[in-house]
Design a binder for these strands. Structure first.
Length: 405
RNA sequence: GGCGGCGUACCCAAGUGGCUAAGGGAGAGGUCUGCAAAACCUUUAUGCAGCGGUUCAAGUCCGCUCGCCGCCUCCA
């Protein structure tokens, strides 16, 4: 049975029953004011692995991914480049989808852009205003966490420390892991000259980052999502904000499972512009690595654990995969065009793959065990039909992994 | 300085109190080979940062010390 770590509750829980079940998943997507780096892709890759493994397990998966194309950063970046927000984000989205495909990721069924969900955002904010959970102040609209129950339940925020004094935070994002003890913004009112603004029933302005995910979820999904995923950085504020907004309007949980992926580091340090250590997929490809090797490297370390990129680690991972693939090629040669036959090995292969993947998507354990199994028998005496059976099993396993063939 | 995380062989890394500490990469030696590559075999931690404690039993729990990293600037 598939067991996954649910951030909401901080424990491993069974997910099931799988098989034929329609699973819905919504994930934070890229903020498209700039190009996504391989650290960003690590998170999306773990989500891709989840989607593909659920499909491998027999589920039908419907996935949405949020595309943040309006926020402070996109607006200032567009100004800096003397272009429109739309033009900037169009280009980055095209690049993003291209790289997603390159890294063997499925393009989600829905990739709503914040700029295309204005109506839903306005609807949400209007309802919150009616319920007096939101209020207008200085041209903006804010959400008052004290007006809802269990605010901060995902993070486990201690609301007894919430200040009595009224405070408002009016930027889309704030750095760091400290909570903003105060009301957060839902709607940025616009001055006359501002770009990226919409004329709506609640005035002229644009939706804040935190109201965007709920608006997209509301647009595409009418029930509790099976999963909501994102990078760990979103565990502070953002996901609790999203949850509070949506659950204030819908009388059921926003998602059953909340999952968060750990970050990618470079030579022991966090990737950051100021350190100048940001890596893009094409930089690695220029060094001779294939897209599959990059995917493998990003997937091999467990998704809840930070992984560290270094030249040496990347080389080792690539070499591990190459060896595995060479071995598979040998088996394939042996198999020829024979009809696949099941055998102890093919069954064992499936069993160990499922065993480890069911354990919170332990790719490394699954891969290492498979490698050990395949190295453990001589190819010579293996009947061709059984070799074909092993290849057939590996092809199924490669559905989620996307690195073997 | 405040808060948080981590420290297992040359590198990556499993280990969630109990048999001789998984596995992979790299290196070294060997088999095979016209040479080379690939493959295969062998080999690499009396010890898990250090010290002390709890326990019949600790890499695994507790305390202290040292070291590295993260957040308090930008970010999946």
């Amino acid at each position: 049975m598939l067991k996954l770590f649910n951030t909401f509750g901080r424990k491993i829980e069974p997910f099931g029953p799988v098989g034929k079940k329609n699973v819905t998943i919504f994930t934070c997507g890229p903020s498209v004011y700039q190009r996504a780096h391989i650290g960003n892709f690590r998170t999306f890759l773990f989500e891709d692995l989840l989607v593909r493994y659920l499909e491998y397990s027999g589920c039908t998966v419907e996935r949405g991914m949020a595309v943040t194309d309006i926020e402070d950063k996109a607006i200032s970046e567009a100004e800096k480049r003397h272009t429109s927000v739309r033009e900037l984000t169009d280009a980055n989205i095209a690049q993003f989808v291209k790289e997603m495909k390159l890294l063997g990721m499925k393009v989600p069924d829905y990739m709503p852009r914040a700029s295309e969900c204005i109506d839903e955002s306005v609807e949400i904010i209007s309802k919150l205003l009616q319920k007096k959970i939101a209020y207008v102040h200085g041209g903006n609209i804010y959400f008052d966490p004290l007006r809802v129950r269990d605010f901060g339940k995902l993070f486990g925020l201690d609301m007894s420390r919430w200040p009595k004094k009224k405070r408002r935070f009016h930027k889309d994002t704030y750095p760091g892991i400290q909570w903003n003890y105060g009301d957060f913004i839902l709607w940025h009112g616009c001055e006359l000259h501002e770009k990226a603004c919409w004329e709506t029933g609640i005035g002229k302005g644009r939706p804040s980052w935190n109201v965007q995910d709920p608006s997209m979820v509301m647009r595409h999904f009418n029930n509790s999502l099976s999963f909501f995923c994102g990078g760990v950085d979103n565990l502070y504020r953002h996901h609790d904000y999203s949850m509070a907004i949506l659950e204030a309007l819908r009388p059921y949980p926003m998602a059953r499972f909340w999952m968060h992926g750990a970050h990618l580091f470079v030579d022991g340090q966090k990737m950051s512009k100021s350190k100048g250590n940001i890596l893009y997929s094409d930089m690695l490809m220029k060094q001779g690595y294939t897209a599959g090797e990059i995917r493998f490297f990003l997937m091999y370390g467990h998704y809840r654990k930070r992984i560290n990129y270094s030249d040496r680690a990347m080389q080792a991972a690539a070499e591990t995969l190459r060896r595995f693939r060479r071995h598979v090629a040998d088996i394939r040669r042996k198999a020829g065009a024979n009809a696949p036959e099941q055998s102890r090995i093919s069954r064992e292969l499936r069993n160990i793959f499922v065993l480890h993947m069911d354990n919170d998507l332990s790719v490394k354990d699954a891969f290492d065990s498979m490698q050990l199994l395949l190295n453990g028998f001589a190819l010579g005496p293996l009947p061709a039909g059984q070799a074909a059976g092993i290849i057939s099993e590996l092809r199924k396993i490669d559905g989620p992994l996307q690195v073997i063939f």
